[in-house]
Simulated scan of single mutants.
Amino acid sequence: MNDTVSFGYEDVAPGEKTRRVGDVFRNVAARYDLMNDAMSGGMHRLWKDRFVRRVKPREGEQILDMAGGTGDIAFRLAESDAAITVADINPAMLEVGMDRAAKRGIDGLVWTEANAETLQFPNRFFDAYTIAFGIRNVTDIPAALSEAHRVLKRGGRFYCLEFSTTLWPGFADVYDVYSHRLVPKLGKLLANDEDSYRYLIESIRRFPDMERFRGMIAEAGFAQTKVEPILGGLVAIHSGWKI
């Protein structure tokens, strides 16, 4: 692992990033889903629906939803009657998810605090591993990908939904202005936290582009790696198989 890692546009020590990312998500947990709606115009719901359709969860499967604290992906996966473990490094995010599940009457999910880089689960335990809008906040991404590979069974599948860099030139310029100028202001208005949402936007800019990240997934041992761009790559679904 490098001596420094990115925290938004800053380069900081790995431990400092872990601490500061934890602070960000403790600050935004209660308003996280409201802000997702505001930032994406509600489109994140459609992206997550599409993501879960690609995963194709099946009854009886063991699925790990990493960085899934608020439950958005887990609730969709659970409709298949698969056994879902929701893992997140941030207890505040897990509390929001458990509260939402109770209000919706969704039972049977397993909620656990876990670090994506050092998972406590045994080798070859899960049929599928999902992570949505979480991988870019991990301090050591290669370590997290390696752990995802370790805990999957042979024939298991990895799916990641994450912001990337759109390849549509005109749209890229418009989104750049919107995200840098307006999203932090929305954070201040809706969550009274401009700095956290500035970090979230900056972290997208520092995240590897689609092909580079696909290569990182392959380097972790996954085969048949693919990337499915959405809105020209503004968001992307990456996938791979453990064989």
Rank of each mutant, 00 (worst) to 15 (best):
R31M: 10
A87S: 13
N90D: 14
V21G: 08
G60W: 09
A30F: 04
R58V: 00
D37T: 04
S80A: 15
E59T: 07
P91D: 11
V96K: 01
S40E: 03
I73R: 04
G15R: 11
L34R: 10
E79Q: 14
S40M: 01
D49W: 03
G69S: 09
A92P: 08
V12P: 02
P14G: 07
L34T: 13
A38Y: 02
R26V: 00
A92H: 08
I89M: 06
R19M: 08
R26G: 15
D72T: 01
A83D: 12
M66D: 09
V5E: 06
R50N: 03
R45N: 10
G97K: 08
K56D: 13
L46A: 13
T85V: 15
A38E: 07
R45D: 09
N27C: 13
D33L: 01
G69Q: 09
I73G: 10
N90S: 14
L46Y: 04
F51R: 02
D3S: 13
A78F: 00
G68N: 11
M43Q: 05
L64H: 06
F7I: 12
R54V: 11
A83C: 11
Y32M: 08
K17Q: 11
G15I: 12
M98V: 06
G8N: 09
N90L: 05
D23M: 06
T4A: 04
D49R: 14
M39V: 15
M43R: 05
M93C: 09
M98C: 08
R76L: 15
G22T: 07
G41E: 03
R20M: 13
G42Y: 00
A29E: 10
D23W: 03
E61V: 12
D49E: 14
V96H: 01
N90F: 01
T70Q: 04
A30N: 11
D81R: 15
N27S: 15
A82K: 02
E95S: 13
I63R: 06
E95K: 13
A67Y: 02
A82W: 00
D11Q: 15
I63V: 15
T85M: 06
V55Y: 01
M43E: 00
V86T: 03
V55L: 09
G8Y: 10
R50V: 06
R19A: 14
V55D: 01
G41V: 08
Q62V: 10
F7C: 11
G71N: 08
A38P: 03
G8C: 12
V96D: 05
N27P: 02
M66A: 14
F75T: 06
R58H: 04
R53M: 12
M66W: 02
Y32A: 07
M93E: 07
P91E: 09
R53T: 09
V96W: 01
A92R: 03
L64A: 10
I84E: 06
R53W: 06
K56Q: 14
D81M: 11
